[in-house]
Structure formats: C-alpha cells, structure tokens
Simulated scan of single mutants.
Amino acid sequence: MISISSDVLNAWVIGLLWPLARVLAMIAASPIFSHGAIPTRVQAGVGVLITLATMPMLPPMPHFDIISLQGLLILAQQILIGAAIGLSMRIVFSAVEMAGQLIGMTMGLGFATFFDPQSQGQSNAISQFLMLFAMLVFLSIDGHLLIISAVANSFVTIPISTDVGGGLNYMKIALWGEKVFSAGLLLALPAVAALLIANMALGVLTRTAPQLNIFGIGFPITISMGFIVIAFTLPGMLQPIQHIIQEGIITMNSVGMPSATPLPK
C-alpha cells in the first residue's frame, strides 16, 4: 500500500501551483494568448501544458506551507513576475494601436470605432488593421514561442524564492512603458505628416474660395489621402515593427534584477 504524507503532498502542490501561477499570469497579460477569441478553458489548458513541460528543469523551491504567509507572498510574486513578462510584449502592440489611433483620428475616422477583443476597448478601423498586421508579423517570427521560452527561462533568471521584490527590475519595466508613445508616434509620423499637409492645403483652399463646402470635400480628400499613404508606407512599417518586437523580446528576458532582499523567516 502506498502512503503519502502531508509533506510530500504539499511539495507536489507547490511544485505545480507556483509555476502555474506565473505561467497563467503571463498568458493573461500577453498578446495572442489572451485574445478574446480564445476560450478561457483553452488558455488554462495551455498554461497547464507549459507548466508541466517546464517543471522538470525548475530549480529547487523553498519549502513553505502553501497557506502560510510566506506561501501566499510567493504566490503573489509569481503572479507579478508573469504579468511583467506578458506586459513587456503587450506594450509593443499598444504602441502599434496608438499609431493606428493617431492615423485614424487625423484621417477623420474617429467616428468609425469598433470593439477590439485584444484590448477589450474601442478602436478605429485603422488601429485594428495595424494590430492585425502586427499580429501576423509577430506570428511569422515565432513570437508566441519566444514568449513561452521567456517565461521558461525566467524560472532560471528569477527563481521561485522568498525575495520581497520578486527579483523584478521595476525601473526597467517602467522605462520600457515609454515605448507606447515614442514607437507609436514614429510609426504614425509619415501618415500624420502627409495628412497635415493635406489639411493645410484644404485650409488655404477654404480661405481662397470661401464658397466651397470644406466638410463636403474635406473628409473624402483626407480619407482617400490617408488610405493612399498607408498603402505606400505599409511595406516600410515591417522593419520598424519587427525591431520593436525584438526589443520587447529582449525586455521580456531581462525583467529580472540580480539581487533582492529576502523575506524575514
């Protein structure tokens, strides 16, 4: 007869629960995996499979009761680490979404908004188009596999321990957040500059011929000009988007810091 003690059972539980919490937090915060079109059961199943695949290579874990204060703090730290890894890549897609928002608003498509299942909010048609384009680029370079590799390597660079800060470099994550504005503006700059010139030309035309209905001819011109500029600049966006994704992958793999303060025993 096989007998299982409480210590062995607790070791089995913490050996699965703590890594699973980090993986599920990564899935909930990262793009692609947290897409609204993917059912929650599928996301949970993928998280369990990733955890089971990474368990054999995990370093030794601290032995604490799962319902103790130290156990709950470790659980919260794993959720924080997984969310930081997923957020590092979501910032890239937020920058692309911001570029689409700027282009769409300048074109006059601010009223053409739809529900975006990726961001769980409203976005215009240009923003959704650029998001789909970025997702295709992301999948073409096996970005989803690189996210799984990053969370698996994080168990080595940021091992499960009793560190108060969870081993995270919070300043690096905060500085990476500025990419939402800088990268989004750079992606939208060609289209916004061309549309600004078109609006200035319409303004001069309105001053020279006041009898023209600026609203009647302005919207078709700006919308047509916007689509033409997007068609010409879209091939050139491939390399900048790939560069931003690569920077996001580097950030995912370097969110840890070398040292942290241990919890009081």
Results as ranks from 00 to 15, higher is better:
Pro190Tyr: 05
Leu189Cys: 10
Ala201His: 05
Ala174Arg: 10
Val151Ala: 06
Ser182Phe: 04
Phe155Leu: 08
Leu132Trp: 08
Leu168Tyr: 02
Gln122Gly: 07
Gly203Ile: 02
Ser161Val: 08
Thr157Asn: 11
Ile147His: 02
Ile158Asp: 02
Thr206Met: 10
Ser182Ile: 07
Ala125Arg: 01
Met105Lys: 02
Asp116Tyr: 10
Phe129Trp: 14
Val137Phe: 11
Phe115Pro: 07
Thr162Ser: 12
Asn169Met: 10
Leu202Ala: 06
Ser154Asp: 10
Leu168Val: 15
Ala150Arg: 04
Gly203Pro: 01
Leu145Cys: 10
Ala201Asn: 14
Met107Leu: 01
Val192Glu: 03
Pro117His: 09
Leu130Ala: 01
Ile158Asn: 05
Leu189Lys: 07
Gly143Asn: 11
Thr206His: 13
Ser182Arg: 08
Ala125Asp: 04
Ser149Gly: 13
Phe129Leu: 15
Ser182Asp: 06
Leu136Gly: 13
Gly110Pro: 05
Asp116Glu: 13
Gly121Tyr: 02
Ala188Arg: 00
Ser123Gly: 09
Ala125Cys: 10
Val192Asp: 03
Leu187Ser: 00
Gln122Pro: 08
Gly166Lys: 00
Met200Ala: 15
Asn153Arg: 14
Asp163Met: 11
Asn199Asp: 12
Gln118Cys: 05
Ile173Asp: 02
Ala125Thr: 09
Met171Cys: 02
Ala112Glu: 13
Ala112Trp: 05
Thr206Ala: 14
Ala191Leu: 06
Leu102Gly: 00
Lys172Leu: 13
His144Met: 14
Lys172Glu: 07
Thr106Val: 01
Val151Pro: 04
Ser119Pro: 04
Met105Asn: 06
Gly108Trp: 05
Leu195Cys: 07
Leu139Ser: 10
Lys179Leu: 07
Leu202His: 00
Val164Glu: 12
Ile160Ala: 01
Ala152His: 12
Leu205Tyr: 05
Gly121Asp: 07
Ala134Ile: 05
Ala183Ile: 01
Gln128Cys: 07
Phe155Gly: 02
Ala194Lys: 11
Ala125Val: 13
Val151Asp: 03
Val164Ile: 15
Gln101Lys: 09
Leu130Arg: 01
